[in-house]
Design a protein around this nucleic acid. Structure first.
Lengths: 214, 214
DNA sequence: CGATAATTTGACCGCTTGGTAAAACATTAC
DNA sequence: GTAATGTTTTACCAAGCGGTCAAATTATCG
């Protein structure tokens, strides 16, 4: 019998690990470009260089692949926020959070778009994760920000909307990449826009949040 | 013969106008929730309360419906930016631009998501519009902002990234609505989050862009 | 009214889709 | 080796898809 599919008890062969990785890599391409419904198993199998039944030997359904990817992405997506340090200096914490998120948009645009696709279409597969772990983490960090505001280190502001605005401005460069490129024009062939964006966003958030002493 | 489809020379019957409107309304629902590939003609026909062939009598293809919608949305989507007035006071212009965009996110979330879906998936249907009319308008307004900065009315900053950041922060409340709700929790049953968002964003951008005299 | 044009329907088509069955092939364990 | 297990392929569904067709129905106009 052959009932390995996702490893029954233990991940056995190295071939399994390899193939699963190849599938997930291909699936990231396809899902991030077409969304869940727009992606087809054939496309993914093709991109992974294997036949459809072969692919379905490792992941029983299209949803299984998607779940795997989403879980992984959700974890790394939250990393920068986790690193947010209550003990640190507010200004440099916010600055490095922005930098980190921008780097993710630059280096992992597919991951960002996969996530965006999912949320945009109502997050049918990850509602629980959003309401659970995500909310908890944000609640925790919002409290940190609020404390900073209370102690006068930054201006008083709604911490949730602050977090939202950092998310949205940074991810914009991954999710709306085509639009950004179209507007900026050809001259922006390189990755210079990320440096410019970093400069602008740091200025905006640092100055916008600086405690007003007057 | 019956070759009206989208009105040969002139829009004839009132019934045509009505049905087309119903179809577009239904299609907006379906496309904005599932993206182009994820949406099916049957779904749209169902939502519009008519049979598939009947729908196809008014729009020959799925793409035709989509194009119609996109064109319409792109126009209204740009309205607020068009209203951006070079003669006005920078602070109040930016403030009202943010307000307008937030109102659009609140009142026309489907339109925003339709657009987001399209851009997210590489804008296959509207690349030309992005590189043409959109870029031109943004270029024009960027010059306005740059002039403001030169004359010291606001701080020096990259006008393109400023526009991007206003787009992203405001649309976030439409496009990532599920996530916003999940994080803010049940208590945010009403539309209060839009007021809070407006307060936060106005503060952020106004203070962040205020000319520094020191 | 009757004729003509506009609208709607049901039946259908060819293709794609997610997924299966079973057998062929490869690998490992003894 | 050979037997057991793991992997891949070929052939195949049944359902869903975008779209067509011709006939039936309804509205419009003289």
């Amino acid at each position: 019998m052959a009932i390995p599919r996702a490893a029954k008890t233990q991940r056995r062969t190295r071939i399994q690990e390899e193939k699963e990785e190849r599938i997930l890599e291909a699936a990231l391409d396809v899902f991030s470009q077409n969304g869940f419904r727009g992606a087809t198993i054939d496309q993914i199998a093709d991109a992974a260089g294997m036949s459809k039944p072969n692919l379905l030997y490792y992941f029983r359904t299209k949803e299984a692949i998607h779940r795997h990817l989403i879980d992984r992405v959700l974890f790394t997506w939250l990393e920068p926020l986790r690193a947010f340090d209550a003990e640190g200096n507010p200004e440099s914490e916010i600055r490095s959070y922005i930098r980190r998120k921008l780097e993710m948009a630059r280096d992992f645009p597919r991951e960002s778009r996969l996530f965006a696709n999912e949320v945009l279409q109502g997050a049918p597969h990850i509602e629980d994760e959003l309401k659970g772990p995500l909310k908890e983490l944000v609640d925790e960090k919002a409290e940190v920000i609020r404390a900073w505001a209370r102690s006068g280190k930054i201006t008083k502001c709604d911490p949730y909307h602050l977090i939202f605005s950092i998310w949205s401005t940074t991810q914009h460069y991954a999710d709306f990449d085509v639009q950004v490129r179209a507007v900026l024009g050809q001259d922006y062939a390189g990755e210079g826009r990320f440096e410019d964006a970093a400069r602008f966003l740091e200025q905006l958030f640092i100055d916008g949040l600086r405690a007003r002493n007057a």
